[in-house]
Computed example of a mutant assay.
Amino acid sequence: MSAARTRAQSIIDENAVAVFSKSYCPYCKQSKNLLNDLGAKYFLIELDQDEEGAAIQSALAELSGQTTVPNIYIGQKHIGGNSDLQAKKGELKALLKEVGAA
């Protein structure tokens, strides 16, 4: 397993909520705003500011099949991107509480 894939998997495994983002991405901002509004505790990695960012994004594509950001995991389960997170808005508070991130 590549170092980037190992790192991505560790981030997913060790955090109740993991958000793989890019600092300039408007969809990432929307996801972070929603999580912040709900008071969620989450691990954030800005792939455009990390020296392994491109490799981690490739590793995430292998892990989840998703090539875009944000790439969001809650309770070690792949949620998807911003539209997927926004679609779960109604159940998100309960889901965050369930994984200890509320």
Rank of each mutant, 00 (worst) to 15 (best):
E14N: 15
K41S: 13
N82H: 08
E52V: 02
A101S: 04
E91S: 12
E62I: 12
G90K: 12
C25I: 00
G90F: 05
M1D: 15
S58C: 07
L60Y: 04
L85K: 13
G75T: 11
Q66Y: 12
E14I: 05
S83P: 05
A40F: 06
L38K: 09
I12Q: 15
I11L: 15
Q86R: 02
F20R: 01
K29N: 00
I11T: 14
I79E: 02
C28E: 08
A94F: 06
L44G: 06
G53C: 09
H78D: 15
K93R: 15
K41C: 02
S2M: 13
N36E: 11
D13T: 12
Y24H: 00
D84V: 09
A102I: 14
A61K: 04
I11A: 15
D50V: 07
F20W: 10
S58F: 10
Q86S: 08
L92N: 05
A54V: 14
I56Y: 05
E46W: 03
Q30L: 11
G100L: 01
A18M: 01
Q49T: 04
Y73K: 04
T68N: 02
E52A: 14
G80D: 11
Q30E: 10
N33D: 14
G65V: 10
I56R: 07
R7Y: 11
E46R: 04
N15F: 09
G80P: 10
L47H: 07
V17A: 08
L47E: 09
G75Q: 10
G53V: 13
I79C: 04
E14M: 11
M1P: 13
C25S: 05
K97F: 03
Q30F: 01
I74P: 02
S10E: 15
E98L: 06
D13W: 11
K29Y: 07
N71Y: 06
F43H: 12
L96F: 02
E62D: 13
K89T: 09
D37T: 09
L95M: 15
S83Y: 05
E62H: 04
L34T: 00
N71T: 06
L95C: 04
S23G: 14
E52L: 15
C28M: 01
V99L: 09
E51D: 14
I12W: 12
A4D: 09
E52H: 11
A8D: 04
G80V: 13
S21T: 13
G100E: 08
L85T: 07
P26M: 01
S31L: 00
Q86F: 08
F20D: 01
Q86M: 15
S10N: 15
K29L: 00
G81M: 04
A101Q: 00
K32N: 07
A8N: 02
A16E: 12
G100M: 03
V19S: 05
L34I: 02
S31G: 04
Q49E: 15
A18H: 07
D13G: 08
V69F: 04
L35R: 00
N33H: 08
D13C: 11
Q49N: 12
T68S: 12
A102E: 15
Q57A: 03
V17L: 01
A61S: 14
A94L: 09
K89N: 04
T68P: 01
N36K: 14
I45T: 11
K41W: 00
A59S: 14
